[in-house]
Design a protein around this nucleic acid. Structure first.
Lengths: 234, 234
DNA sequence: TGTAATCTTTGCAATATCTTAACGCCGGAA
DNA sequence: TTCCGGCGTTAAGATATTGCAAAGATTACA
């Protein structure tokens, strides 16, 4: 990026406009400002900026309309600026085609980060590293995901389907607390009521099978009020 | 950070103003001064300083109003300067969004330390949004937000739900004073009465669990009349 | 269709946590 | 010095959460 990106700022409040303009100029961006929606739309067309910063609270046009009109013909990234008191606008603005959202008050660091992110947005693809875990070991307990097998002191332990799913979920996230609601959704799906009885019963059954003393578990711990945590695999 | 940070000093007393300005210039900071609240607000917008030092006793505007107006649109760190005779102002200023306070008379060492802390704190916000903070470390204490786990000398420490929330809140804002009222609202919600009894009890319980000597804490400090401050993560 | 295994629900006891209240300590002010 | 306000500490009752056994419902399979 040898040439600095150009930015169009559409903002009616004097203080904020000058604050942002100065910040961005100091960073070497080429910046143009507009204080009304109409002016902003006009400048968008004539300048073709690399990115548009848009305050939703404009005097002449509704910010949502500005987004809609821009999106009719342009796909320039739009970062919306809005007051904290209007949080619900966020979803609507994003639905209309805004790319990001920043809430007043904000710091320069945050603003710059949003701009950089939007500018390089296209390049990044999340590379999912699906390195799969073959087994869990802890003390006398072994869990083989592939073979669907659990052993205690070398001897096979029989778990029911749900019990294996549950223990497996915990083992795959060993060391981390999984909340009751997360576990419930993963095992019983999103439509189950949030009554944990069934989870507690299954855990009691699992503990009876894998813990020497279920009252003082060595493998699966309860985090009261939160969920369960399995000892980290070694 | 090759460029030195810029600081805006809003202070009406000539002597103090020149003293601070000289001190900071010698440290290589780029410093601008304002002698009234209005001038300060105006310069904040046009200069975009990295940090603002604000004396609460200004001739034209109430210091609290200055904070309030700045916080409408900016989250630049504000360090409040206050006279010892107005102790109760400090908590109010912090609640309105100031980041730290310093009491007159103060030494240059203390001032510089506060400035460095605030600068570090604001630059961490950017790191947070990109790569989230997984852990807090300080001495023998570790707090892993993702795993919901606290260790002391490598051994797991059991905290209750409220205790973890409270310690986590302080850890995420380590180095910064959090007022009692702020903490109360964050943990117990806005409808709790402003009786800090319950907060004190919880803090005592936490200290019993994580401090070698709860009477001389190493991790969480009391700022009498204001709130608590946790040692900065290293 | 019958049987055994599994899954889910129910009710209660055991335990952990939260909250309130009372008291002691310390440092600053009178 | 004594008084007083703010904070830390402890203990105990109230509340919430969890473990467990056992009964009922469902499923799988011969």
């Amino acid at each position: 990026m040898t040439l600095k990106s150009s930015i169009l700022l559409i903002e009616d409040e004097e203080n904020i406009r000058s604050f942002i303009a100065t910040t961005l100029k100091n960073q070497g961006y080429k910046i143009t400002t507009a204080s009304t929606g109409r002016e902003g739309l006009h400048l968008s067309a004539s300048l073709c900026p690399d990115i548009i910063l848009l305050d939703l609270g404009l005097p002449d046009l509704d910010g949502m309309d500005v987004i809609r009109q821009l999106r009719d013909w342009s796909s320039t990234p739009i970062i919306v600026i809005s007051a904290r008191s209007h949080e619900q606008e966020k979803a609507k603005a994003l639905d209309l085609g805004a790319d990001d959202y920043i809430t007043k008050p904000f710091g320069t660091v945050e603003l710059l980060a949003r701009i950089r992110t939007s500018l390089r947005h296209s390049s990044q693809l999340s590379a999912d590293s699906a390195s799969h875990t073959p087994a869990y070991h802890h003390g006398n307990l072994t869990l083989d995901f592939e073979k669907h097998l659990v052993t205690l002191n070398g001897e096979m332990v029989h778990l029911t389907q749900i019990e294996f799913k549950l223990l497996g979920l915990l083992a795959m996230n060993s060391g981390k607390v999984l909340t009751y609601s997360y576990i419930m959704e993963k095992i019983w799906g999103p439509y189950i009521d949030n009554n944990n009885q069934i989870l507690r019963v299954n855990m009691a059954n699992i503990r009876r099978k894998i813990e020497e003393n279920p009252a003082a578990p060595e493998h699966v711990f309860t985090e009261i009020g939160i969920g369960y945590r399995m000892a980290e695999s070694d």
